[in-house]
Amino acid sequence: MDFDLMLRVYPFFLKAALVTLELSVLTTALGLGCGALGAAARLSRSTVLRALGASYVSVFRGTPALIQIFILYFGGPQIGIQLDAFGAGVIGLGVNIGAYMTETIRGAIIAVDRGQTEAARTLGLSRSETMRKVILPQAARLMIRPLGVNINALIKGTALVAAISVVELTYTAQRYIGSTYKPFEMFFLAGVIYMVIIYVTGLGVNWLDRRARIT
């Protein structure tokens, strides 16, 4: 392995990793938003909303994320959606992971014991008061770990947007291969940086989960 080369290029990789991080943070935020809306729809009393939520989940989990990003970025202009590569990447990845987060959030909500709802309703709390004061605070704790799994998948998934030329970590590795002809070193370096990001994120999730348990 050519360690000298790796030492020379790694600062450029770190800069690209910042883009990966930025993608990850924005995508997580968008995904959580979509997930919260999706879960609300899936659990709604309205059949129309429930059907909408269910179709959202099955369409976005049922097709490759790469195809979704391609449709948005390459197909978008045909239907009047003009996005730069970064914007298309964030929206494509965010809406995609939002479908998974919908199921995570919904799962945590329905995992809260039925007796909790019964006790709250018996005291006279309305459906929405019960949701806000009794169910969601308990569901929030239950969803930290599985959302962590979603975010882990999402961080790795950001590599997909290299395919639409967003200059993030994977794309940068590919570019350096073009000039160095050392694919092993370049991809290895990228892999190590992904692993560090994921490891640190995992620590954050563990910390949140522990904190939620104590209180």
Partner: peptide
């Protein structure tokens, strides 16, 4: 008022 077999206190 109602009291249940399994208490159903709010654990949080």
């Amino acid at each position: 008022g109602m009291v249940f077999q399994h208490f159903n206190l709010f654990p949080h």
